Computed example of a mutant assay.
Amino acid sequence: MTGDGFDPVSFLERAVPVASNEDVGAMRDLLVETLEANGADPTVDDAGNTVASKGASDPETHLVLNTHIDTVSPHIPYSREDGTIHGRGSCDAKGPLAALLAAFFSADPASDSRVTLAITPDEELLSTGAAALDVDGDLYIVGEPTGLDVCTAAKGRFEGTVTLGGVAAHAAEPDSGSNAIDALAPVLDALRSFDDDRPAHPELGPATLTPTMVDGGENSNQVPAECRLVVDRRSVPPETADGFRSSLLETLESVVPEGIDVGFELTERPTPFLEAFATDPDHDLVTTLADASQRVGGRGDVRPFTAATEASYFSPAPVVVFGPGVLADDEGAVAHADREYVHTDDVRTAAEALVQTVDHLVS
């Protein structure tokens, strides 16, 4: 239990049973109720973000604590045994939320500092909340299951479709047309070699480009006039979504055979893609949180995060990802899996590490 009486595990026991996979309304109500019961004055904006602040209105240092209340489907019921809470959202990301709440309630900002809790409603789908979030922070801590490690970087994720256009013809006379599917061969070769001359990121390693879905052709006895290939891009800084699109299209145009048209467009979405980010591992935000985590029982490790997060929306301001729970363990997937869980001791450890970090940064 933190010094102000808020118990993050008790909150988590209330939060995990609340389904927030299809509609976050009930979970947001619980969050607002909890904030108000602990003296905060939260607001909910038009995008569904829940925001509460304390401290100076024009601060020199503004620390933002962020995570999300939505979960993936299906909802998995709550259970608890032997110091472990099971259920959808237990580690992704209601456990991190509980720890962030403890830090926010304990915060006592100095006269020139401000702390804001900003909780988004749509991280697992389109990040509509984060894209609309009107919070201008200097430092950000994003709650996700990191095993109490401090994560300073993450790859971005882009998705798009390569379209190959040829000329239909009878399969008995294949040379009378232009086979769009046959043109996949040089395209796939180009995808495999796309990053050969690009340096790996010092923390995140190399970017990846993976073909994931393909379709084309209309009849089994016809030279296909069109073929579509979906690709998944895991980017590293400083690549942007627009930069990737332009670079890949230029590469593909240079390899497709004569008579084949090629195009590449990113998948349409109402919000920006989650791009890669990287924070200096020596920044005070990083070292403070890593030291605090180690002091209260974590490893204190600093490493990249293996999944894309809304932290990318807050970069290039210094941002780290931190929280109790893990994405996967020795048995397999944890977050987004039927066996999702978080250890209550880790929730308390994360809360104490965050309390100490917030105190150092803004008090």
Rank of each mutant, 00 (worst) to 15 (best):
D345P: 09
G325A: 07
L31G: 09
A241D: 06
L101I: 08
T152G: 05
S127V: 02
L126G: 07
S79Y: 12
G216S: 04
P202R: 07
P257A: 04
A168K: 00
S73L: 04
E268G: 12
G298C: 03
E265Q: 00
D82M: 11
G87Y: 00
D291V: 07
L248T: 11
V320M: 03
D149T: 12
L97K: 11
D196H: 12
G160R: 01
G156H: 05
A19S: 06
T71M: 01
D329E: 06
A168M: 01
R245K: 09
G87I: 04
A154R: 00
R303M: 10
L361N: 10
V231T: 07
T288I: 05
D29K: 02
L31D: 08
F194T: 10
V32N: 14
E331M: 02
N221I: 03
T309M: 11
D284G: 02
T288P: 02
P96Q: 02
P318T: 08
L31K: 10
A172P: 15
G87P: 11
A353F: 13
E258R: 05
A311E: 13
R192N: 10
P17S: 08
D197I: 02
T212L: 05
S113A: 02
A15W: 09
Y140N: 08
V321Q: 04
D301K: 03
A225S: 12
G25R: 00
V326Q: 15
A292S: 02
V223A: 06
F194W: 12
G39T: 04
D108K: 04
P304A: 03
A47P: 10
V347P: 06
V319M: 07
V255W: 15
S79I: 06
L249G: 00
A102L: 04
A241K: 05
H343K: 08
T344W: 05
D4V: 04
L274C: 08
P257I: 00
D215W: 11
T349H: 02
G89A: 03
T344M: 07
L361F: 11
V51Y: 15
D136E: 12
D291A: 13
E124F: 01
E203N: 10
T116P: 15
V286L: 07
G323M: 00
Q294I: 01
G165P: 09
P42I: 01
R198E: 15
P211E: 07
I181A: 00
A56N: 13
C227G: 04
F158P: 02
D215S: 07
A317E: 15
T288N: 12
T240P: 12
V72Q: 07
